[in-house]
Design a protein around this nucleic acid. Structure first.
Lengths: 231, 231
DNA sequence: GAGTGGTCTAGACCACAAT
DNA sequence: TTGTGGTCTAGACCACTCC
């Protein structure tokens, strides 16, 4: 199962940008040059570059070339990015620590949210994400086994659960809920909070193939995390 | 300057959906059929349909066809939905109380946000919104006078500031920021908070005609208000 | 004029779904 | 088996920018 050519080209460009090979405002290789390098038709390169331009990672100018777009500082709620990408975009170093990974039985609330029976087996993970060493997110997740059978075998320090789930269970829909909350005991322990510091809680339920696939609770320190966006 | 073929096909499909020719979940003509009808290559049809699928107006399934996607509702964050409409949608009774209305001088932070000089005159309003008698939002707002000259003469118990501003200063753009915060003194006094109850703070800056027009700080009791949405 | 991206063609092979 | 979408080719012409 090789990745399609256009995807390989996208990855090549994204890796180059991440590695600083082309910086903001700099020109990337032209379509004909990429076509030669990857031995594909120009239309295939065009698709790869066009998609990155649609995602505003590149900007194109007819007659002059394709350039790395200025980094956008927007974690739009409508398109929530993995925390690792968000941190990388700010130039920070991301590290994840797995606090728990295993199977649990669904309680009443979870059973209702995931449309399984009470006591059903669910995969469960608990991670802390750090930016430059400081905890920035406590991620607790419950996953319906059928939606991601290999969930428990993953190394979530390398690929975040959110990234893994997107790969194995194409995301059809998601619901979210944002709240200000006093920290839960687990969040207090994991997030290195000041006295009286509240948490920004992002609760998310995802659907894949028409059925509920996972529920996530993302706890963030109120003093060090905010959601931003624009329209 | 004729529109490109792929755009004509997109328009054809959008018009058909708008006219009810194909309803939610129904199949639209296949790529080969559209190619015949428009006398273009299948790749051109593919581009048109793929773009509409990327925009989630259509959904595609290999082997079975292309379907009209279920209409998506906008997240409450993406639109500026006045709190009064939000409450009405839940079946609650909305009442607003004006705590302050007048002119103030811009401090450093506000001057920077609104691109005016320090000490410049700004309109200022402070309101509490109640749902069935319980305070649900403390709304503090600073407005550039040029953007809404009649701001101070309004009766904000009848029309909320947000509704008034949308009328007089067509909204071009907005930035928002969502945070979890301990209550400010004003919020503590106005929102009838429990001990240790945090606030969900929505900070919003609006632009009209290219210039910053207003800044709003919307404080909500963490236990009684959440932002929700889906995609 | 040379190089760039924007669009388009007329095929092709494949994976997948419905039958 | 037939029809669907997913991907790709090897060209082409055009509008535009830069030199």
């Amino acid at each position: 199962m090789a990745a399609p050519a256009y995807q390989r080209i996208k990855d090549f460009l994204l890796d180059g940008i991440a590695a600083g090979e082309w910086r903001e405002g700099e020109r990337i290789p032209s379509e004909p040059e990429l076509a030669r390098r990857f031995r594909v038709a120009r239309m295939t390169v065009n698709r790869a570059v066009k998609e990155l331009a649609d995602e505003r990672i590149l900007s194109r100018a007819q007659g002059s070339g394709t350039f790395v777009a200025p980094a956008r500082q927007e974690s739009t709620l409508v398109e929530i990015r993995p925390i690792s990408a968000e941190i990388a975009a700010r130039g920070g170093a991301h590290r994840a620590e797995v606090l728990a990974l295993g199977a649990v039985k669904a309680g009443e609330a979870l059973a209702a949210e995931l449309a399984v029976r009470r006591g059903a087996r669910l995969f469960h993970s608990l991670l802390v994400h750090r930016e430059d060493g400081r905890p920035i997110q406590l991620e607790e997740r419950w996953v319906v086994p059928a939606a991601a059978p290999g969930y428990l075998d993953q190394d979530f320090t390398a690929v975040t659960p959110s990234e893994y789930l997107v790969q194995v269970a194409p995301l059809a829909r998601a619901e979210y809920r944002i709240e200000a909350r006093p920290p839960s005991p687990a969040a207090r322990a994991a997030l290195d909070l000041d006295d009286g510091e509240p948490c920004l809680l992002l609760h998310r339920r995802t659907f894949s193939g028409g059925a509920a696939a996972s529920v996530a609770e993302l706890w963030h320190p109120g003093s060090r995390y905010r959601l931003t966006g624009h329209f």
